[in-house]
Design a protein around this nucleic acid. Sequence first.
DNA 1: GTCTTGACTTGGACATAGTCCAATATAGGA
DNA 2: TCCTATATTGGACTATGTCCAAGTCAAGAC
Lengths: 139, 139
Amino acid sequence: MSDLLQRLRDRGWRLTAQRRVIAEVLDGEHVHYTADEVHAKAARRLPEISRASVYNTLGELVALGEIVEVTTDGRAKRYDPNAHHPHQHLVCAGCGMMRDVQLTQDPMAALPEGERFGFAVSEVAVTYYGRCPDCVAGA
Amino acid sequence: MSDLLQRLRDRGWRLTAQRRVIAEVLDGEHVHYTADEVHAKAARRLPEISRASVYNTLGELVALGEIVEVTTDGRAKRYDPNAHHPHQHLVCAGCGMMRDVQLTQDPMAALPEGERFGFAVSEVAVTYYGRCPDCVAGA
DNA sequence: GTCTTGACTTGGACATAGTCCAATATAGGA
DNA sequence: TCCTATATTGGACTATGTCCAAGTCAAGAC
Ligand SMILES: [Mn+2]
Ligand SMILES: [Mn+2]
Ligand SMILES: [Zn+2]
Ligand SMILES: [Zn+2]
């Protein structure tokens, strides 16, 4: 994730302790934390970090395209560092766990011209819902 | 929508004035109102209707499968009376307007077995984002 | 038509997710 | 080391949704 920090420095970002720990928290595969989860994990390394800074930083990283904001059900938004490889999501309806998935067909191709109603369509999100192995076993 | 009221009566529902106006508000095509919008429209006919009754009734109609709850961005959930014909959504990023769309391919088929991670997958939601004709012109 | 009763409605308190702001602190250049 | 634009902070505030005890009423029984 020092790649990320370098890119941010190149864009004129001040590298504060808060931004550094947030970037560290958002490192890894299949990472999809809520803002509060990011705050809790960041606070283990930097106890005085505020919720406001977490929201500020997440919003800026989204605006820069370095992370993706994912909304599934009506719960809290989740933040996904896998922003440079387009993908879709598989969500557990039991525990909320989320996995990245790659589709075999481009979902944009499934929307025929006659169903576009004059819209300039630019994006598509596909979300699969089910129960993860743990939740199937536990139920 | 008297079909709906009849089905509800058959299921032992008390037909109160509140439930009747909510059912009327939720009649039509491409209807996707938030709970607050349903409340505002219902209150035009029945001024004393409470937010709690709107939330109660919407929740019950969802549980009965008579309407569908739709979450797109991180804003308020929307309620869709088009529950008996599976469909997906096209959302305007400008004004939030939402249209029903029919796809030419089953999105469930696009998720290969190797990408299911042992989940019991049961549902899929596809949401297209863009700008509606009004918002393209207005911008 | 009246009575009865369990289901329904209501206002308001509460919960959660997120935004905003004025005061304070600090990264990084001079 | 100093300066200052930028970042951080705690807390107030907004939006959305849930919950509850008290009051109301739909509809079946008579
Ligand atoms: Mn992801
Ligand atoms: Mn719809
Ligand atoms: Zn699970
Ligand atoms: Zn629009």
